[in-house]
Design a protein around this nucleic acid. Sequence first.
DNA 1: AATTGTATCAACCGCCAACTG
DNA 2: CCAGTTGGCGGTTGATACAAT
Length: 311
Amino acid sequence: MEMMRMAMSPAMSSATAAAASEDEGDLRRGPWTVEEDMLLVDYIANHGEGRWNSLARCAGLRRTGKSCRLRWLNYLRPDVRRGNITADEQLLILDLHSRWGNRWSKIAQYLPGRTDNEIKNYWRTRVQKHAKQLRCDVNSKEFRDVVRHVWMPRLVERIQADAAAAGEVAAPAPVSAAATRSMSSPAGAMYLHHQQIPLAAGAMVVAPAVSSEAYHHHGCGGGGDTSCSEPSQAAVTMSPDDASSTLRSSSAAAENDTIHGDVLSGSWSELLATTTTTTIAATAGLPDFDELGDFEDNLWSLEDIWLHQQC
DNA sequence: AATTGTATCAACCGCCAACTG
DNA sequence: CCAGTTGGCGGTTGATACAAT
């Protein structure tokens, strides 16, 4: 399987480019060839990861240690998943980014098999594209509000619909908070309190008990401050491993259900006109968020959405 | 069919913190 | 303690694929 993936790797088609730089000196740059990939995979299989510079030399690769590390982590590692960011994963990315900002590696810890590079690419291509459509900055309050009140609920709907379509234990309409909270987000896990939660794939996960008060207490306070809301809570309530198990089951179903691409594939104007999840956003444009007051400017997450949907 | 525009993603770069001798 | 090295991270770029005209 791994070999199949490597065979389909773009490295194959770029042999020419790589060859062009081959005789430039000691170190090669540019796309990796299949041969290089095999050298690296074989070496790590036999010796494990180690100091990357010496690894590169010992493996007979004329690459920098950095380049080898990057190739391994982002592409060759056996457990790496690529392509088709699922709705579950999109939701988790949006949620975690709202707390931590561009801490890609940190966010990636909660998406098993996904690399920081891929998440970063997803953000830059998909999310920033939507910000562009709305003619606002991706970091602006306006855009974050749209994400919170439109995009994320939309994702929740999508995940629920897919779960229902798969004939699983689905929450009855109207949107049940319990079902909504069964999302794979650490924020969702806050509510679970050792409940057994039906996931998209029908798998069950037992969430650790942590009070939502404690979660609130650790919320971010300052605009764009990514140093707060350390995963202290997230880590307690759902470690990367917990998140992994959750996501593995849900994303497996998602793959079967061909959740491909972006939930917001249409235009934002269409979406704002048709979305049913958040009437506040759909009927009167975006709400006066200044009056919401419950949470601070940059403190928004799935939890906030759920609270507001209940109101 | 050819050209142009856009999206995607692998790979590189530079910075910084941690590690090592 | 210090200087050099290494690893990790976020930002950016360039090649390629795909879609639209």
